[in-house]
């Protein structure tokens, strides 16, 4: 039997290898069973149990750095998957009406189970061509300005905003600086702090600093279980504070960037559970879970008087980090 190397390479994380090995053994036996009609159930079952145990144990005890690797997993569902799997209709709206259309941020009108909203989110891209086209999800100023222009549209028509955050950070480049990256993000943060419509933010993968916050000011901030949100990438932090990029694991731990940490610090409201073994193992399940969570939150926020909502948002922002 040829040993099929499924998913090896970028799709398999180092700490997942024992799981992958079990997967392979199980698959081998199942193939054998299929071709020979032998009764291999007594051998397959315990393997499956072991696999499940291992999966649970591994994912319950992920180190912050391992969680970051899961958050960056190439098979993890991206905004295009959520659009396809979650929405009943989606009309993408392009362009910032000033400079261009940044592919790194998607904006459009959406409906889902009768709920209308504006979807805003980072787009990382699936294929290499697509990834290059959208700079791996790192937006330029025009991306943030596009997001704001569409968010104001949503405000005008009283449509809630759903923001799916997944970026390693705003694009660091000469053109981005020339076009005012800092200014674009600053304006977004300020405007979102008082935009008169409900805003839901979800970190679906990477929550990279200002690039995330630039579309991330909201009434309810949620994180998928294996996402992270940080003021700086652990690589950057290690390079600056440890003066050595190889200390990423320590940096990842020190930065307290997981959902659990940020829940304890009172930064986020809710952690959305992922399928066992991470969203990349079962994207369909992940999409369904997110859909249910979003519907719940959108309906809840919609039922609140807008004035109270805006006031509560302000209070929340104004007291960030306060003791107690």
């Amino acid at each position: 039997m040829v040993k099929a190397k499924r998913n090896d390479g970028p799709g398999v994380l180092e700490f997942e290898r024992p799981i992958r090995d079990l997967d392979e053994r199980i698959e081998e036996l199942e193939t054998l069973r299929g071709s020979t009609n032998m009764d291999l159930e007594p051998e397959i079952e315990p393997l499956k149990e072991r696999r499940l145990d291992l999966l649970k144990k591994t994912y319950e005890n992920l180190s912050p750095w391992q969680r970051i690797l899961v958050a960056r997993h190439p098979n993890r569902p991206l905004i295009t998957d959520y659009i396809q799997g979650m929405l009943d209709a989606f009309v993408e709206l392009h362009g910032d009406r000033a400079f261009g259309d940044d592919k790194a941020i998607v904006t459009g009108l959406a409906t889902m189970e009768g709920e209308r909203f504006l979807l805003v989110g980072h787009r990382k891209g699936k294929s290499m061509a697509e990834r290059l086209e959208c700079n791996f999800g790192s937006a330029h100023p025009e991306g943030y300005r596009k997001a704001l222009q569409k968010m104001k549209l949503a405000e005008k028509f009283g449509i809630p905003i759903v923001s799916l955050i997944n970026t390693s950070g705003a694009y660091p480049g000469v053109a981005a600086e020339e076009r005012g990256q800092a200014s674009a993000i600053a304006v977004n943060i300020m405007e979102m702090s008082h935009l008169k419509t409900p805003i839901v933010g979800v970190v679906t993968g990477e929550g990279g600093s200002g690039g995330a916050l630039g579309i991330g000011v909201c009434d309810r901030l949620m994180m998928l279980e294996n996402s992270y949100y940080s003021v700086i990438s652990p690589e950057g932090c290690a390079a600056i504070l440890w003066r050595d990029g190889s200390n990423v694991q320590e940096a990842a731990t020190a930065l307290k960037l997981t959902g659990k940490d940020l829940r304890e610090l009172g930064i986020i409201d809710h952690i959305i559970p992922e399928p066992l073994g991470g969203a990349h193992r079962d994207p369909r399940m992940m999409i369904l879970t997110l859909k249910q969570e979003l519907l719940k939150v959108i309906r809840e926020l919609r039922s609140q008087p807008l004035d109270e909502l805006i006031e509560a948002r302000f209070k929340k922002l104004r007291t960030l980090g306060d003791p107690g």
Partner: peptide
């Protein structure tokens, strides 16, 4: 932002912008 305070410091960006908006 001061990285030793993690996301708390990132969120000061939102805090100052919100206060400034008012």
């Amino acid at each position: 932002a001061r990285m030793m305070e993690g996301v708390v410091s990132l969120m000061q960006m939102a805090k100052t912008c919100a206060a400034l908006a008012r």
